[in-house]
Design a binder for these strands. Structure first.
Length: 231
DNA sequence: TTCCAGGCAATAC
DNA sequence: GTATTGCATGGA
């Protein structure tokens, strides 16, 4: 489907590189075309993560952001870091009850604290790059979180589908409203070259577009995809 | 006040 | 295999 590539071009030309995945401690390139905070983003720089600590931070963020906005996740990550808990070993040997109050801003803190602990066991046993199925085996990690981890933490070309992707491409007329996760994922991977940077950028652009225009209640005024959208 | 946010697992058919 | 429900905080 050529539309998939065309939409990418429009979004990239309109919004520019998004600099995902955000990391604490980065100044983040100034990117005035982006909504919200630019903290931690690194537009045009695909060299992250640069070490194991950053890799673990991305995985934690991927779990914490489930059904939760990023500013709330940032608060939780900072709180963990303040307590010295944002490392796989420190968190692994920490009591789960010590994690809970730190991640409260991200919601579902009882579940997510346990999920983070599951992550630490995975990390400690991990050698090299995991398979998607290995990541999916972690309790608390479903399709989207697994793909986020593969794509942004391990630099593997695994396309991420989220609620925004489903919403935008359903409205565009390219996805059925009851389409399965893996069907949508395959559609993108079949249409695009197998390219990590492209996958990283496309997913981030989808999120940006959903925040700007393709909201729950769409704001089609000024939408850059308006001409080719069936909504 | 109500709705929404970068989902997931458990449960019920 | 598909549909429903609980999980929770905080901003708009």
């Amino acid at each position: 489907m050529d539309e998939i590539r065309k939409i990418y071009s429009i979004l990239y030309d309109s919004y520019g590189p998004q600099g995902w995945w955000p990391l604490l401690g980065l100044k983040g390139g100034v990117n005035p075309t982006k909504t919200g905070s630019v903290n931690g983003y690194h537009p045009g720089d695909y060299s992250y993560p640069r070490n194991s600590a950053e890799r673990f931070e991305i995985c934690c963020g991927a779990v914490l952001t489930q059904n939760t906005s990023w500013p709330q996740v940032e608060k939780a990550l900072l709180a963990l870091k303040d307590e010295g808990l944002l490392s796989s070993t420190a968190m692994h040997y920490s009591d789960v009850e010590k994690i809970k109050p730190r991640i409260k801003p991200a919601g579902y803190f009882n579940q997510k604290a346990q999920y983070l602990k599951e992550l630490t066991s995975f990390f400690i046993n991990l050698r090299g790059v995991p398979r998607r199925d290995d990541v999916l085996g972690i309790k608390g990690v479903g399709d989207e979180t697994a793909d986020s981890i593969m794509l942004y933490a391990f630099g593997q070309a695994s396309f991420v589908v989220d609620a925004y992707t489903h919403r935008i491409f359903t409205r565009m007329g390219l996805v059925e409203k009851d389409a399965k996760y893996l069907e949508i994922k395959k559609m993108f991977e079949d249409a695009l070259a197998t390219d990590v940077e492209l996958y990283q950028e496309y997913h981030a652009l989808i999120v940006e577009h959903a925040k700007r225009h393709c909201k729950t209640k769409p704001e089609c005024e000024g939408c850059v995809l308006k001409e080719i959208c069936k909504y």
